[in-house]
Simulated assay, not measured.
Amino acid sequence: MHTSFKKTLALSLLGIALAAPAVAQDKPKVAFVPQLIGIPYFNAMEAGGKKAADELGVEFIYSGPVDTNPVDQLQIVQNLIDQGVNAVAVSVLDASAIAPVVEAAKAKGAKLFTSDSDAPDSGRAVYVAQATDEGLGATIIDELVKRVGEDAKIGIVSGEATASNLNAWIGFMQKQAKERYPKLTLLEPQFAGGTAQRAAQIAGDLMTANPDIKGIIAVASSTCPGVAQAIETAGKTGSVVGTGYCSPNTARAYLKSGSFGFSVLWDPAQLGYLTVWAGKQLIDGKTFEAENSVPGFAKPVTYNAETGVLLLGPPAVFTADNVDQFDF
């Protein structure tokens, strides 16, 4: 009886051991590779991705470069593909370099898609967009003109020069200025990479070289603190209006001090959630509809089959009056 029990137990344990890897393999893996780790914006996307993974039954992997280096980013993406991750989303740093990695993913049976920053000509499976590039570019110009006037001089401090999303927003800022505010002067964009310190230096130089400047736009979330601090350091709070694409938590102190008049963004946690949801749809072989019902979203998420863009929604404007209603 004792021997029989031991045999039964051994067989049971063997069965568990054999079954365990199969269960682990059955759980699809969705990864997101940000432009940069360790900043509030992408931290919020990570949190949204984790929430989606828990609710949708997938394993979520978050891995990205420690600085805005396109080569490092693409290596991380390639490593994830080589490890057998089923779907990999990337906030693209260099749109011109990602197409071969998309092909490598296809060869492995993986789905490579973009989120937050696109590479439209790369063959990516879908682009999970936070808002339309045109909407973001037009909104920040319209809101700034309300505060500085239609004939003001405005500086632009961006992040990495190769970031397709940042460049697209700048392009639509320029388009909006040209078409709606012909007297507005937009200075040539300056690029700070991913550091607030470099952004502060550039913003300070812009104010010194252009004493009549009325506004400065921080295009990357990582450049927002630098631009705001430069305005404060120069004693220009109130005479130079800072703004940018930054989260309420990043912008809160600057909105309240007056160095920032407003900021424009969306909810990056929702964007992270939508990214993982889209990855799961791709893994399951499901097609996106013109309107998609996503768990936890109040409104349907739209999809443009022609452009391959899944759209989170319109941009939001945060000010000193409403910033405390948000926490991300």
Rank of each mutant, 00 (worst) to 15 (best):
F42I: 00
W266D: 08
A203T: 04
I76T: 07
Y181N: 07
E55R: 04
A119W: 02
G235R: 10
L74A: 05
Q75I: 11
V309H: 05
A44M: 06
G171N: 02
T139R: 01
L310C: 04
S91R: 06
A278I: 11
H2I: 12
G194S: 12
A228N: 04
Y303I: 08
S164H: 13
E188D: 14
A290C: 04
A168Y: 01
L93P: 01
D142P: 03
A209L: 14
Y41W: 14
T8R: 15
A234P: 02
A209V: 13
A20M: 14
D321C: 14
Y127L: 06
P211H: 01
G215R: 10
A163V: 08
G15E: 02
V148D: 02
G38W: 10
G64L: 03
K108P: 00
D94Q: 06
G57P: 01
K7Y: 08
V23Y: 15
K51H: 02
R198D: 15
S117G: 04
P100W: 00
A31M: 06
P65E: 03
D54S: 07
I170Q: 00
G193E: 06
G204R: 14
A20G: 09
S259A: 08
D116S: 13
W277L: 03
E160P: 08
E232C: 09
I61N: 05
W266M: 12
K29H: 12
D212E: 12
D284P: 04
K7H: 07
I156G: 03
N167K: 07
P65Y: 05
T223F: 09
A22R: 07
A152E: 00
L18H: 08
L206S: 09
K7I: 12
T250M: 14
A105N: 00
G137I: 00
E179Q: 10
S12R: 01
Q176T: 03
L14R: 05
P100V: 01
V71L: 09
T195S: 15
P300D: 08
P40K: 06
S158T: 10
S63G: 11
G171R: 01
P189C: 10
F262T: 03
G261T: 03
A177K: 00
R180S: 14
E55V: 02
K178Q: 12
G279D: 14
S158V: 03
G296V: 07
Q83F: 09
R180A: 14
I217G: 13
D82V: 11
L310I: 08
E103C: 01
T114A: 05
N79E: 11
T243P: 02
D284W: 09
K153A: 08
Y41N: 10
P120V: 11
Q229W: 15
E179M: 04
E306W: 12
L18M: 10
N165G: 07
P315E: 12
A131D: 15
P28W: 06
Q130V: 15
V33H: 04
A163H: 07
V88P: 01
A269L: 05
S221D: 14
V264D: 04
F318P: 09
G308H: 10
Q325V: 11
S164E: 13
Y181F: 10
V276H: 09
A131Y: 15
L74E: 13
V323G: 04
T237K: 04
L310S: 11
V90C: 11
P300T: 08
T233S: 15
L206D: 06
E179R: 03
G38T: 09
A298N: 08
V126R: 10
Q190H: 13
D324C: 07
A17I: 07
Y181A: 04
K256G: 06
G258M: 02
D26G: 12
A161E: 12
A177R: 00
V323R: 06
